[in-house]
Design a protein around this nucleic acid. Sequence first.
DNA 1: CAGCGCGTTTAGATCGATCTAAAAGAGAAG
DNA 2: CTTCTCTTTTAGATCGATCTAAACGCGCTG
Lengths: 339, 339
Amino acid sequence: MKRVTLVDVAQHAGVSRATASLVVRGSPLVSASTRKAVEDAIAELGYVYNLGAARMRAARSHTVGVIIPNLTNPFFAVLLAGIETVLEEAGFAVILGNSYDSPAKQDLFVGRAREHGVDGLIVCPAAGTEKRFIEDALKWGIPLVQTLRTVPDTSTDYSGMDQHDGMHEAVNCLYDFGHRRIGYVASTLFHSAHKERLAKFREAMSAKGIEPLFVRHLESTHQAARMAAPEIMGKRTRPTALICHNDVLALGLHRGLCDLGVLPGRDVSLIGFDNVAEADLVIPGLASVATEPFNVGKNAAELFLRRISAPEAVHSSRVEPTYFVQRGSCGPVRDFAEA
Amino acid sequence: MKRVTLVDVAQHAGVSRATASLVVRGSPLVSASTRKAVEDAIAELGYVYNLGAARMRAARSHTVGVIIPNLTNPFFAVLLAGIETVLEEAGFAVILGNSYDSPAKQDLFVGRAREHGVDGLIVCPAAGTEKRFIEDALKWGIPLVQTLRTVPDTSTDYSGMDQHDGMHEAVNCLYDFGHRRIGYVASTLFHSAHKERLAKFREAMSAKGIEPLFVRHLESTHQAARMAAPEIMGKRTRPTALICHNDVLALGLHRGLCDLGVLPGRDVSLIGFDNVAEADLVIPGLASVATEPFNVGKNAAELFLRRISAPEAVHSSRVEPTYFVQRGSCGPVRDFAEA
DNA sequence: CAGCGCGTTTAGATCGATCTAAAAGAGAAG
DNA sequence: CTTCTCTTTTAGATCGATCTAAACGCGCTG
């Protein structure tokens, strides 16, 4: 039982393999009658197109390498879903790589992707990725789109989100509720999105003429945030509001605060980022800045497709808007004695 | 600027391409000195192995198609992470397909995967997948591993979990707390895991000599479960405890109950499945049966690797244990008037 | 009827690796 | 020195498609 090839199809249809090849590629050069004959032969023999063989002569492999830092984080999983949906539709296969935020694993994966002859890469760079990584890809002639994060001092297509609006809305909401002592809880992964979000926080604060009360770095897990609550609320000058780099931290802190008997929204206001589904499940609901990872993923894939069709076009960026979603965890400042 | 091929490497090292080929494949047939010469040439020229060309003659492509019903669901994302981790390690590339639980999309993806010449498939079948789907794959000679769900009346390698222990522990816990009026909240996706879990529930109940109070089917979203709380608690005979098919339903219901002023663990006991991270964040904590999707994924990948190396071996199964995690949402039955 | 243009079809070379089967080289034994 | 292993290397065919450039058939025109 041998594999069915174009030669078999051609023979069965009584044409040459060149003609059969034209049919499978949907060329307009063949007449309607021969096209029909070949298509019938294909159906009858159960022919399967061999992309590997085609790739050897033709330029494109219809394959894209996608690198994600951590699939376990639903945020990235949804990003990936967005990417996959668009690429699937366009007839591209996604080769998946999970970098676990390790540049070494990331390099390894790119090597493998090159062997597979990918047409390009869509990358959310691992924290600590060097400039060299991007430069190499370009040197090798591999189109590359960065998403969510960027490697410093590099220029490629980029799909991210606009941290500005959401953060300003969040800070303004706190400000209007009377909050002035506002702390920021960041993660310990120092990538571009992390820095940008923090910078926007500082910017929004100084626009209101106030200084951040503190910036605290925590490992980005529920557990770490929950454990840190006593320390954060035990500071000499106690914060009246907290903004967190993401909802993982915010939800962990939410629970940690409750453990202490400090009620979010009444005793301290709490705002997260990403507006994950669970934000609406805790009591009181977690106010959060919505970022749409699915759309960011779709944008990344679309930028990639554009790049493929116009390899020399100038690099472009797509930023997805963010917006503040108010919930119970965010309320007016409580007029208890200023410590 | 042309691509570097094995011919270039061979020339540069002063050997034939056949020898160079042996080196890249790590054959023991070459002497240490020529091996070194070729390796130097590879490094110097920046040669990249062309898997596409290799695949044409050799049997294996080192590529696996992985089909997941819904990446947006963290449970599946973690399953995928487990699969990817093992396959990556073994040098396989993962081609990802998101079926959105649609058999049609699934078929489409398999077609594409075949064109890419995958060595096999790891599939969590979309709800409603027909027997034909599995049979076709086997007919085409594509090794296939099913995971988490199985298509009825099919026999392949399978990586799943043991619903028995966790469910029995959960029911027994409720029983010991004095609960007798226990309802089951299922999802509306009727796949094998759904059926098996429900069956185990019935089994565990009848082992204790009690009848399920009701089985209610809900769309598997937080929102749907939250909205259904009033109806579920408004039944003529009010349940004293609820077991949910997964934590999405359980968390939604948790919130819905709180909205009603019904406190989980005091007024009604609530148990979910999967023990997602958020189960520990809500108040009171959601008791849940832990299932380890990452391990299930790893098992699936390992079964696949075994199948590749021994294509004719008899089909085997791996089931990951499940265990009950007790938290505040599960407590003694309250002695209010029996309706 | 030769010559031209147009739409279709095709033979042959080619992509970059691997396979097979045989050759070359190096020692050892007779 | 020949012959015989044993190791190492290689030429040539091959996988299944695509490309190029040429050929073919057919109607139309001068």
